[in-house]
């Protein structure tokens, strides 16, 4: 495509799409759905790609986690807009409920099964999901026992929480299905 460069080095694009993405309606009521098999195959390609790019399991997990984060960051605005009229949650529990119910429903079509708090640590919460969409067709090789590809979803949740001002780390574990362990920063708990 042609582009012209002026003296200061700023590139001005000559492509003018007729309708920009901002002109499209944001609240499409018609839910578009696609086959789960195709999704599984696409996800498998993503997993394989990350695996080929990394030399160890932790590196692989980090990579998948990062890809998840890039999605999570994009989920925030649209979901708050659709579900809460654009009003953000500022209370910890409400935020977690929002993720468990609204966000999960929007992206996975059902609520997350359980939300629990650790008995001995008020900074730690668990989101528990019996069968995670991304793990539906994945069998983990024996030598990679602790690997859980739902780390991808954990990345999404982490990005949502962090970008909403709840500093935390989220990891995925095999426990009662898949458990996402959310560990909040001290300051989040301290402000109540």
């Amino acid at each position: 495509m042609n582009s012209s460069t002026n003296t200061t080095g700023i590139t001005i694009s000559v492509i003018q799409p007729k309708t920009s993405i901002l002109d499209k309606p944001i609240n499409t009521k018609v839910k578009h759905e696609i086959s789960i098999n195709l999704y599984a195959l696409l996800f498998s390609e993503l997993v394989q790609y990350c695996q080929n790019k990394s030399s160890s399991v932790p590196e692989f997990q980090t990579k998948l986690h990062e890809v998840g984060q890039s999605i999570g960051a994009k989920l925030i605005d649209i979901n708050f807009y659709r579900e809460k009229n654009g009003k953000r949650e500022i209370k910890l529990l409400n935020m977690l409920q929002f993720i468990k119910i609204n966000l999960w429903k929007n992206i996975f079509g059902k609520e997350c099964d359980k939300l629990e708090r650790a008995n001995d640590d008020e900074r730690t919460y668990y989101l528990i999901e019996q069968d995670s969409l991304v793990n539906k067709f994945i069998s983990v090789p024996k030598d990679k026992g602790s690997l859980n590809c739902a780390i991808f979803v954990a990345g999404m949740v982490e990005a949502v929480l962090n970008n909403c001002g709840f500093k935390s780390t989220v990891t995925a574990h095999w426990h009662k299905g898949t458990t996402y362990m959310i560990q909040f920063d001290e300051q989040v708990i301290a402000r109540g």
């Binding site: 839910k31 578009h32 759905e33 696609i34 086959s35 789960i36 098999n37 195709l38 999704y39 696409l42 996800f43 390609e45 993503l46 790609y49 890809v67 998840g68 890039s70 999605i71 994009k74 989920l75 929007n106 992206i107 996975f108 079509g109 969409l133 539906k136 067709f137």
Partner: peptide, 28 residues
């Protein structure tokens, strides 16, 4: 996964999840 007879009518997932995953893959 066990095969379940001829239950081939597949489950569906929200296309936004697909869109976002694919988008993340491309940007990666």
């Amino acid at each position: 996964m066990a095969r379940q007879g001829n239950k081939l009518d597949s489950k569906k997932v929200n296309s936004e999840m697909f869109t976002l995953t694919y988008g993340a893959l491309v940007s990666q």
